[in-house]
Design a protein around this nucleic acid. Structure first.
Lengths: 189, 189
DNA sequence: ATAGGCATGTAAGCAGTTACATGATTTA
DNA sequence: TAAATCATGTAACTGCTTACATGCCTAT
């Protein structure tokens, strides 16, 4: 199973509707797991069938009703079991890296454009994650929060997100610089 | 399509058999794309059917025969088309990050063990990638190689691998330190 | 008015994973 | 003698992506 546990972990933070989870998983925060909305609705239905979560209907005025989901005891137990099972290696798949690998044999212009775009989305994500960190730790400084805070899990994964996006951003910028310089001097057919 | 282009890009480096590609894709070097052997044999068959690669049989003594694959003109054209199409966002999925997200609600011991393991595999990959970089640039220094080298694509993606593994490694070490300290002082039920 | 946000799903198809299957040769 | 390396596949299953479908409310 896969998405399953990411959803359970997300529900540790409180009640969520499918729509709300979709937004969280769209950015990929909180879980290092991307998922499309349709996938979430499907997974939530399965999780409820299996008794790992329960949904309660919330009637709303002026907007569609929604269902908020909470972890059950069985859900928490399943998370516990998952956490102590051996971790699968991280899955990374990147189109852009494949393109850079091939850059000596194809037109570098579109690749440069894509590197610039990736750099700017990484910068945007970084800013978002840094805002999230500030919200999580409130007035406390980071060191104190990590030592005494009650719930540091989401903070730690968000830190991972920051580092990752910074790495991605810097790599894109540096790689683009190399390719642009080569295009200028142009001594490679 | 997905694996497809990663395989085509890998074949820019020369002829490969399914078995050889499997080793490359198992580590994930060269392409930022992991793939299991079975997947590769399947994909190679499809690519040959579609005329993007051609295989030639190599008869061997003392070991099984193999088939080496090369890009065709159509294959290179397909790569060119792929490189200029908009890049899909990078896909990242990580069990371990999900576990860290949940670490305040589950037993941290097994998570610590998994962080240590991840840190050491990241260090091993880093060492491997650094060796690869040295092989690629031979005697030249990095700056010169990136300016004047003929084929920098694989070098640039390998640099990305280095940065990524370093980021992963450091995050695991730092996260483990935070969690160990919390376990010692133990003021959080 | 139109775009965007809220809110939930179904269906079909493709990609990726896990398990199974085989067999010779080299190294420890 | 056992384990690792070379070498190639098939089959079943699960999970993920893409496309489709609906409809109200709010803000510009």
């Amino acid at each position: 199973m896969a998405l399953r546990h990411a959803v359970l972990a997300a529900l540790l933070d409180g009640e969520y509707s499918g729509y709300q989870l979709a937004k969280v998983f769209d950015v990929g925060v909180a879980n290092f797991w991307y998922a499309a909305p349709q996938q979430l609705y499907g997974e939530l239905a399965k999780l409820e069938r299996d008794g790992l979560i329960t949904g309660r209907q919330v009637i709303q005025r002026h907007r569609p009703n929604k269902r908020l989901f909470t972890l059950t005891g069985a859900g928490v137990a399943e998370l516990e079991r998952f956490a102590s099972a051996p971790a699968k290696p991280l899955v990374l798949r990147d189109d852009l890296a494949v393109k850079v690998h091939a850059v000596d044999h194809v037109d570098p212009e579109p690749v440069l454009a894509q590197l610039a775009e990736r750099a700017s989305t990484a910068a945007a994500k970084l800013a978002l994650y840094e805002r999230t960190l500030r919200e999580l730790r409130q007035d406390t400084d980071e060191e104190t929060f990590l030592r005494d805070g009650e719930r540091v899990g989401p903070y730690l994964t968000c830190l991972a997100g920051c580092r990752l996006e910074r790495t991605v951003h810097d790599w894109c910028v540096d790689t683009a610089r190399v390719l642009r310089q080569r295009a200028r001097t142009g001594s490679h057919p």
